[in-house]
Design a binder for these strands. Structure first.
Lengths: 161, 161
DNA sequence: GAAGATTGAGTACTCAATCTTA
DNA sequence: TAAGATTGAGTACTCAATCTTC
């Protein structure tokens, strides 16, 4: 969402891509993820992720560790500072999503939207030739941060809509 | 749409932002638009548009002309070469959209999606404080290129879905 | 002073090439 | 040879500063 990205950039002073990576790490067990898995979750290329992690590392929000089981591998770990940064950004993120969705869709429309998005998502996956899941057990539920559109919509709908 | 952008970049060798500008110009009367209006139509900042037009001009796809009524103004004009480039890109664009939408949504879902998108659009405009229309008479109908999602959806739905 | 538009600096994204380990 | 990850070059995007004209 263009509008959400802009508000994140201006008010929370964080890029959408950076935010996405922090969210994925915060939801991962142990706040850590292999670079390859993180790239898949965040829908980025390996090189793109590498540059982003460089930047996040320079902020002290993420650190790299060697992978214990595969000496080629690197693990990105969310630091306490990174968690703080994410916590500071989330109010803006939530508010931006809330302003778009809150009170604008009926419960029926929300169900319709979900079905439509799933259908279109299948269309994109089929067109792209994707089949594999990015990683195990990350998407089913948001343990800490309600950052997905569906979660935020559900949350705001019960309050405001 | 991420997927559409990627296919445009790889197969049609054109950036999404460039494509958008070409489409807006092709739909404008006389294939020409003031920089400010073009920026509004294409949802870009003035400086961003200026850089994009620089690039398009270097390709010979767009040229700048002085504005007759306002000596501060510049007018971006789509060249024949630019129209050709757009014509070459459109098949990829249409196909990408078609693959996502084609046969995936029922007629009822398409109507629902339209209503939902309009509601969410109102949400974004309200949140952003937008009220004004970008320009007069550009959006009502696509004279040449069916590049909007709704037009492409309607076109493919009648054929494939 | 405000509006239309451009410029330059800083940062980010994409691709191809590269390096190390499996 | 393939997989995991990084690097560097080229290009694009964003912001603040600037210039001209209203």
């Amino acid at each position: 969402m263009e509008y959400v990205d802009r508000r994140l950039r201006h008010e929370a002073r964080i890029r959408s891509a950076h935010h996405t990576v922090l969210v994925e790490l915060s939801e991962a067990p142990g706040r850590r993820l292999r670079m390859t898995e993180l790239a898949a979750c965040a829908q980025m290329s390996p090189s793109g992720l590498s540059h982003v992690v460089d930047r996040l590392q320079s902020f002290g929000w993420v650190r790299r560790e060697a992978c214990a089981t595969d000496r080629r591998g690197q693990v990105a770990v969310l630091t306490d500072g990174g968690l703080d940064a994410l916590a500071r950004a989330e109010p803006v993120h939530i508010d931006a999503i809330r302003r778009v969705f809150c009170g604008r869709l009926t419960a029926e429309q929300q169900r319709e939207l979900r079905a439509i998005m799933e259908a279109l998502g299948r269309g994109v996956r089929r067109a792209s030739g994707w089949t594999a899941e990015p990683a195990q057990g990350l998407r089913p539920g948001p343990p800490a941060e309600p950052s997905s559109v569906t979660a935020a919509t559900a949350a705001t709908a019960t309050e405001g809509g």
